[in-house]
Computed example of a mutant assay.
Amino acid sequence: MNKSSFFIVGKHAVFEALKNKKRKILKVFLTEESKKNIHRLSPKKNLLKDVKIYFKTKKELDKYSKNEGILHQGYVAEIEHLEKIELKEFISDKNNLTFVCLDEVTDPRNIGSLIRSAASFNIDGLIVKERHFPKESKLMYKSASGCVEHLNIFEVSNINTTLKFLRDKNFWVYGFDSKSNKDFMDVKWEGNNILLFGSEGSGIKHHTNKYTDFSVKININENVESLNISNSAAIVFHHINQHKKIS
Rank of each mutant, 00 (worst) to 15 (best):
Y75P: 12
V76D: 11
E78S: 07
I79L: 03
E80S: 15
L82H: 13
L82T: 08
L82E: 09
K84V: 01
K84M: 12
K84F: 02
K84Q: 13
I85D: 00
I85P: 00
I85H: 00
E86Y: 09
E86F: 03
L87G: 02
L87C: 05
L87T: 01
K88I: 13
E89F: 07
F90C: 10
F90K: 11
I91W: 00
I91A: 00
S92R: 09
D93G: 03
K94Y: 11
K94L: 14
K94F: 09
N96G: 02
N96W: 06
L97M: 11
T98K: 06
F99I: 00
V100F: 14
C101Y: 01
C101E: 03
L102P: 06
L102F: 15
R109P: 03
N110R: 08
S113T: 13
S113D: 07
S113F: 12
L114N: 01
L114A: 06
R116M: 03
R116G: 09
S117P: 06
S120M: 15
S120R: 05
F121L: 02
F121M: 03
N122F: 05
N122S: 13
D124H: 15
D124M: 11
L126D: 07
L126G: 02
K129Q: 14
R131A: 10
H132Q: 15
K138L: 12
K138P: 04
L139Y: 12
L139Q: 13
Y141V: 10
Y141K: 13
K142A: 14
K142V: 08
K142P: 03
A144Y: 12
S145L: 10
G146I: 02
G146M: 05
V148P: 03
E149A: 04
E149P: 06
E149Y: 13
H150G: 01
H150C: 07
L151K: 12
N152I: 00
N152A: 10
N152R: 02
N152T: 12
I153V: 08
I153K: 01
S157R: 06
S157L: 14
N158H: 11
N158Q: 07
I159S: 04
N160W: 10
T161M: 11
T162K: 01
F165G: 02
F165N: 08
F165H: 09
R167E: 12
D168M: 01
